[in-house]
């Protein structure tokens, strides 16, 4: 009984702290959603990367599943994830540079490049290890090219 009481209290404390933090950050749902999307990219890339580096034994099914997820994610319609007024200049907790909104065509082109590289990885990952390793390069280049232009450096 006492144990349950402690648990409830700590749960309540966590909820209070959590909601306080949320109120202070005033996180825009679009900002957290797009950051969650980046997290999903990274998780699936992690599977592919571990295989590419030899940390995880190559298995065509595992590799194809991760690559399939990544390709599906890269093809999501992101229009609503990037509303006006959610750049690093106006919004806490985002590194999205204002240039995204002044160069939306260029930004979309980079997203298309990612979808293309992810689709190529989808084909490569199920083929063999060497193909997967080779496809990592263009995938990384697509991620990096967008970050270079549209994301604030973390220094």
């Amino acid at each position: 009984m006492r144990h349950l009481y402690t648990l409830t209290l700590s749960g309540l404390a966590a909820a209070v702290i959590g909601s306080t933090a949320f109120a202070q950050d005033a996180t825009n749902p679009a900002v957290s959603a797009r950051q969650s999307l980046m997290g999903l990219y990274a998780f699936n890339l992690g599977q592919l990367g571990a295989i590419a580096k030899g940390e995880l034994e190559y298995d065509a099914n595992t590799a194809a599943a991760a690559a399939g997820n990544l390709a599906a994610l890269a093809k999501l319609d992101q229009t609503a994830l990037w509303p006006e007024g959610t750049s690093s200049e106006t919004t806490e907790g985002t590194r999205a540079l204002p240039v995204i909104w002044s160069d939306m065509d260029g930004f979309h082109a980079k997203a298309d490049d990612l979808a293309e590289a992810a689709t190529a990885m989808e084909g490569a990952a199920g083929t063999d290890l060497a193909s997967l390793q080779g496809a990592m390069k263009d995938l990384g280049a697509a991620c990096g090219a967008c970050h270079k232009e549209y994301r604030q450096p973390d220094d």
């Binding site: 990274a42 890339l45 990367g49 990592m136 390069k137 970050h147 450096p153």
Partner: peptide
């Protein structure tokens, strides 16, 4: 690891699957 460094220099992916910056 050596594999991490080599992968980073190839694709730009850090071990956390962020990308090289700057």
């Amino acid at each position: 690891s050596e594999a991490d460094i080599a992968e980073y220099l190839k694709s730009g992916f850090t071990p956390d699957y962020d990308t090289a910056g700057g």
